[in-house]
Design a protein around this nucleic acid. Structure first.
Lengths: 129, 129
DNA sequence: GCTATAGTTAGCTTCATGGCTAACCAATTG
DNA sequence: CAATTGGTTAGCCATGAAGCTAACTATAGC
């Protein structure tokens, strides 16, 4: 569990950089060599390679070298586990909102009941809802 | 200074820290004061406040002070826009996988057709699956 | 076999991050 | 009013991230 958290550390840190997000987006469309990936960026290759390395150690990207060319591809597992984190948070958050809605409904009912017990009020008395 | 970071940069950077993710998770369950939030962490308050500030500037958390107590709550918009990013990536990735599946199916069919034209081959002929 | 190509390694700056302490408001509370 | 509580500001320090150049390795192509 704690391991997985540190994994998320790395994944989110990797995705916090626009260059690296662009690389991930590019790799979503299919694998590519380091040179192809680096081409759109105005950046020295060693700097770019650091980004690739960050993506690899985060688990977002895999690569293997054949000949003198290193080909990179996406490893969707990491992407998915980050997405899962959001969905978990959203689940908790929505559950709370649901409970809040229930609470509001309860308040409303109580108010209606109170109103029903006071016939001098102008409110409609209905009782069945 | 005033380096205009993109919104996603800030959101992902904010979520790259386990303390801050824990704060977000806690706030998913409902709002809390700075003191309540800081309590589980073995950290000096000024350090903790920095995390709160990072979360606020990323847009993930809102806070307001009443009296001497500052109450924090989640601002789901930022969380959702990060989640959206993943879903966009996944859409591209799945589209590619679909195309790849189509390609594989095509290859398979061609292979089967070739095998059917050569009766001296191994037993497998049709494979209706 | 020489040369161009594709990465890699090493080493250097610069700036941001994450932590600390100490001192400082400003509301509550006794 | 005095003390406590809850948070804030200021400043220091260590580490790491992001960029660069220069020099190097190892394949591919002629």
């Amino acid at each position: 569990m704690a391991n997985q958290l540190s994994r998320l550390d790395q994944i989110f840190a990797a995705l916090a950089d626009p260059t690296r997000r662009a690389i991930v987006m590019r790799l979503c469309a299919g694998e590519a060599s380091v040179g192809e990936l680096a081409d759109p960026f105005d950046m020295a290759l060693p700097s770019f390679m650091k980004h690739i390395h960050v993506l690899e150690t985060s688990g977002l990207v895999l690569s293997e070298k054949s000949g003198r060319v290193r080909t990179c591809r996406l490893s969707p597992d990491a992407l998915i586990s980050a997405e899962d984190w959001f969905q978990q948070q959203r689940a908790v958050w929505e559950m709370r909102l649901d409970r809040f809605a229930v609470y509001v409904m309860k308040l409303k009912k109580e108010k209606e009941r109170a109103a029903a017990k006071r016939p001098s009020r102008t409110t409609k008395r209905k009782g069945s809802e």
